[in-house]
């Protein structure tokens, strides 16, 4: 038996929307600790990893040690778009061999003593679970900046080039691109905004390096403005995937690992 409820359906919708940018379907792994979702995109360039801990939800109950539900994200997103922002979202699942396996999605809106209810059932599909996991890494470089700023730069660069070059230096980040017709060059410097800390840019670059990334992936990561107005990018070097993370309360969040372009 699984049941979890959330008073902000918009946030869960944003998470699913962000995942569906890269992944068509993935396993939702419910345990007593919470929900985990992880998958590689079909090109094996980006890996999405989402954690929504038990305490992140307003109510959370999972009786099974581990429940693996294969979900089509496009369909789930359609369902979640039907949920009013002021509703209570409830996901539930009952283990029943006799019936088609489905995830129930319910939206409830308080109407005085009564409740308006909209209910959906999402048919589940079998997806082979991942047999691999992300290795533990010692990140040597870290940068934190407003998500909106990353979004703006990636959106601008996407107008000119499919590839963006990021040069991380001790005291600056240069983001650039070039095409046959033009070049673009952005410089981002660390600074502290004493009146609004969320505008600050922080860098801790121990080993400067340069990496090229596919622009549309970075742009899609930066769409997570609703998840966190700050993005943290962790790195080691050009050969190791970079991690972009957007944290939420209660140890929850969404993070991506992206492979860079290689020159050899």
């Amino acid at each position: 038996m699984l049941e979890c409820k959330l008073q902000e359906p918009k946030v869960f919708r944003s998470v699913v929307e962000a995942m569906s940018e890269h992944i068509k379907e993935c396993n939702f792994e419910f345990t007593r600790e919470g929900l985990k979702m992880q998958a590689l995109d079909s090109s094996h360039i980006a890996f999405t990893f989402v954690t929504l801990s038990a305490t992140w939800w307003n109510e959370y109950r999972c009786d099974d040690e581990a429940l693996l539900l294969g979900v089509n994200l496009e369909t789930l997103l359609k369902i979640l778009k039907c949920g009013p922002d002021n509703s209570l979202l409830a996901l539930s699942y009952e283990n029943d061999d006799d019936e088609v396996s489905e995830l129930k999605v319910k939206f409830e809106v308080d109407r005085g003593e009564k409740k308006d209810v909209a209910e959906f059932a999402l048919k589940l599909t079998h997806i082979d679970p991942m047999e691999e996991e992300v290795p533990e890494l010692t990140w040597t470089n870290e940068l934190e900046m407003p998500t909106q700023e990353l979004f703006r730069i990636a959106r601008d660069i996407s107008l000119f080039s499919e590839i963006m070059v990021l040069e991380f230096d001790k005291d600056k980040l240069r983001i650039s691109c070039s095409s046959k017709e033009s070049t673009a060059d952005y410089l981002v410097h660390p600074f502290e905004d004493s009146t609004n800390a969320s505008n600050s840019v922080r860098m801790n670059i121990e080993a400067p390096f340069k990496v090229s990334l596919t622009t549309h992936y970075v742009l899609s990561f930066a769409k997570n403005k609703n998840i966190n107005e700050r993005v943290v990018i962790k790195m080691i070097d050009a050969e190791t995937p970079l991690m972009f993370s957007f944290s939420m309360k209660e140890g929850s969040g969404i993070c991506y690992y992206i492979a860079g372009r290689l020159t050899d």
Partner: peptide, 14 residues
């Protein structure tokens, strides 16, 4: 600009 890397060799077995 090089070629796009993949994540295949990045993961470790559980």
């Amino acid at each position: 600009q090089g070629y796009q890397g993949r994540l295949d060799g990045f993961f470790k077995k559980k």
